[in-house]
Structures are given as C-alpha cells and as structure tokens.
Amino acid sequence: MSVSETSSASVEKANPVRETIIYILMAAVAITTVGPFLIMLSVSLTQDIRFITFPIELIPSPVTLENFQTLFARTDALRWLFNSVYVAVISTLGGVITSSMAGFAFARGDFWGKNVIFVLFLGILIMPDTALIVPQFVVLSQLGLVNTYTALIGPWFASIFGTFLLRQAYLSIPRDYDDAATIDGANLWQSWWQVLMPQVVPAMATLAVLRFMGNWNSFFYPMIVTSQSDMRTLTVGLGTVARSGGDAGLDMAGAVIGFLPTLLVFVLMQRYIIRGISLSGVKG
C-alpha cells in the first residue's frame, strides 16, 4: 500500500487558525531535520573554519572548494568513493538477481528440501547480523579474505529478505503464464527470464533501492573486514575522518561527499523507498 496524500482520519472542517498552527509545527520539525544539512553544506564551503560556531552565516563569503581539495589530497576519499560505488553496484545487482532467481524457485519450484531450506532462510532473517560479525571476521580471516572486495560484497550477493519479497511477487502471478510458456516449449530459465521476471520488475526496483542504500550506509561489517585505508568504503573512511579530529570545514566536506549520493538516490527513487518500508517495515 502506498502512503497517500489524503487521510481517512482528518475529517475536520478547514479552519485557517488551526491550519496555520499545523504549518508552523511542521516547519519547526522540518528545520530540525534539514537545518543540520544546510549548515553542513555551508561550513563545507567556508574558508579556514576550525569550529562550527553560532550564530552562523549560512552563505559563506567567499565560497570556496578548498575543504574538498584538502579532503581529497589528505585522505583516500576518492578511493573510498570508488570502493563504495563499486561495492554498492555489484552488491545491488547481484543481490537483486539472486533474489529473483531464488524467489522464483520458492514460488514455483517443486524440489527436495524446499521447505527445509525455506525455514532455514527464515531463521537467518530473524538473526541479528551484529551478533555474527566477530565470527564472520574469524572465518574471513582464516580464508584470507580480509581487505578484499569479495569480503565486502559477499554477504550482499544474496538477500533473504529479497528472496521473500520476490517470492511474494511471483506468487501473485497467475499460473497460466507458466503453462503458456511451457506449452510454447520454454524451459525454466526461459519462462523465468522472459515471461515471469518482467512482471516483478517493480518489486525488483524496490529491492534494488533498499539494497543500494543499505549497502552504501553500512558501517560495522565493512569496517571489520577492512584494515587498509585503500580498501575502505566511503562510510567507513569517513568514520575515521570523524575520529581524527581535523577542521570543521574538512569534516563537513566529508559529510557532503557521503551525503550527496544517498540524497540523489532518495530524490530519484523516493517512491520505491517509501513503498519498500510500507511493504515490509524492514530495511535492505
């Protein structure tokens, strides 16, 4: 269900005083959520700024990109950005495709162990991933996979949540499509790829957006499996910047670099994000 503009609860008559109060309240909340980002942007464009002090001038004079130049010169931020894009794109594509395949198998398949595997997957979905991080590190270090893209991407290459989401999507397609495809001589791969998958594209898009944001913003796991600066993702790298105690200008330049890609995805894909939450209440 999508979150619609109108509401069943608000049946009150329009009342200008009441409406004004509501707008003032809403604006106040909006200032608390948007304000920090505006200040972040403003400080990142300010010359020689060690601390953020109030009252603050929102439009710096002169506007400068020095902080960004310093950030890229002094840290591996450019490399982190590349790592994040690479890891997030491969993880998202991989996770969505494998979820689509497995979702199809669990919706339509008739194979040994289907129910057992399904319950096992359900078990993983319930398990908190933070509790498994130390054992995951132990296993990955024994396999010699610390500081590799394999470790960063691996767990994201399959999504149990995505498998469930897509299984539901496939279940909503009438069996007639499968039958028609079979009569036309299609094998399983052909009826999956050519007949059924095109009909679950909206669900796959929702999953893709949730996975991308989740991967881009993930911190604990990628921090644990990388110790070299050049293998860090942007989120992990910025974490080290935050802990290093540099200039406010430098910090906020980092924050802007970390914030813009997610903002872009949010603005373009907002519909899918909101739908994903309403659908499931679970992130990525």
Binding site: P36, F37, I39, M40, V43, F51, I52, M213, W216, N217, F219, L234, T235, V236, G237, L238, G239, V241, A242, A248, D251, M252, G254, A255, G258, F259, T262, L263, V265, F266, I273
Partner: peptide, 13 residues
C-alpha cells in the same frame, strides 16, 4: 537516508 558516518561528522560538531 544518511549514513552513520555523516551523522557522526555533523553531530560531533
């Protein structure tokens, strides 16, 4: 939609 690192960078200040 913001990562915890961005959040921390902002709120530490």
């Amino acid at each position: 939609i913001t990562s915890v690192a961005v959040l921390a960078l902002i709120f530490r200040r």
